[in-house]
Nucleic acid binder design. Sequence first.
DNA 1: CATATACGGAACTGACCAGTTCCGGATACG
DNA 2: CGTATCCGGAACTGGTCAGTTCCGTATATG
Lengths: 207, 207
Amino acid sequence: MMRVEQAEAKPRPGRKRDHTRDPEILDAALDVLAETGYEGMTIDMVATRARAGKATLYRRWSSKSELVLDAVGWLKSRDLDHATLPDTGTLRGDLVAMIKAPNLRESERKLKVMAGIVSMIARSPELAAAAHEAVVEPRAAVNRIFLRRAIDRGEIPPDADVEKLSLVAPALMAYRVLMLGKPVEPEFLLWAIDHVVLPAAGVRPTT
Amino acid sequence: MMRVEQAEAKPRPGRKRDHTRDPEILDAALDVLAETGYEGMTIDMVATRARAGKATLYRRWSSKSELVLDAVGWLKSRDLDHATLPDTGTLRGDLVAMIKAPNLRESERKLKVMAGIVSMIARSPELAAAAHEAVVEPRAAVNRIFLRRAIDRGEIPPDADVEKLSLVAPALMAYRVLMLGKPVEPEFLLWAIDHVVLPAAGVRPTT
DNA sequence: CATATACGGAACTGACCAGTTCCGGATACG
DNA sequence: CGTATCCGGAACTGGTCAGTTCCGTATATG
């Protein structure tokens, strides 16, 4: 049976035998998820983008929902290393130090993936939990650290509600990306920090 | 928009053709949209819930996307009447006066509908515009009025960024409903007003 | 080189759904 | 009461997609 010679363009190394390709497939799934949403995503799209066969995906994941669940979990592996977080001595310094292109790109990607699955969250508690752990929690955790440091320094009142405050900036970013369709830009984050987060935290306006 | 028939000016014999059932059908569409999302929603679901035939829906709307577009536009008709907005004399008073069960229910419904279509927003500019006008804009408009009044009173600095500030509370609500899956409760809004919105607006803490 | 393994791809099945067509019945109006 | 008109419902069509099966081939190992 003649097989059409497929366009070579094969930068891909030889085939591997274990599950080495999982990351590529999960990344492809996340891309498709962000572009088309859960319902619009097809297994074929993911397979094609990962240069894999549909059968290969089903050898590893038993269903579309399992694949998505795993892909969202994979998002979490990109978490910031808490050991390398900025520690500038002021709350504002710490927050501003987080405004870096790679961080913004990563946040935006997470939010776009989130946009693709929000409609599923109400129907799938498992997916909701995975999304919470991959998107909401890591960001909140970093902010909690900064806020607690600020309390320890006496920079903000000790009775500040760290739990809720840690979600303010993420909420503003999510609203901007998901509801307004605008990108997250440094100027926006600077405004959010100086005019919302810091006043809300109770930082005494300096100068 | 784009009704299949427009016969208002020409009453004919037979059944009335004034599209009396449109509201019920659009409401049904919004319910299904909120429950299952755009892709999960089927025309049959909407027809069944509205106790109508599928053919009836296609007599009025040429496609599923037209129906959804119209339904989202219909959401806007629930806008608050600006003439009856509270005017308590303080920014906090105005904001707190908006915390009422009917308002909260309406906001939550809008946000759940929004959850069902966020993944479409990037792909359909028309739907994005309709959603913005029905969900984002009305709420922001009310907050802008309150903020401008506060500026006129000298309650907050005249250089406050009304445009951005009017989105802070909506962003917190949206994050809570869409990302955390929690309901909008009065206590949460009170916290948001007292600990985020007012400090951000620059209200002098009053004893 | 021989053999075992897993991969990509294509073909297939069954379910589901948008959109269409048709019909029997209900309703207003003359 | 007759008739024009619209309605709800059911049947149908065509396309799409999840999930399965099969096969030829590339790779690893000995």
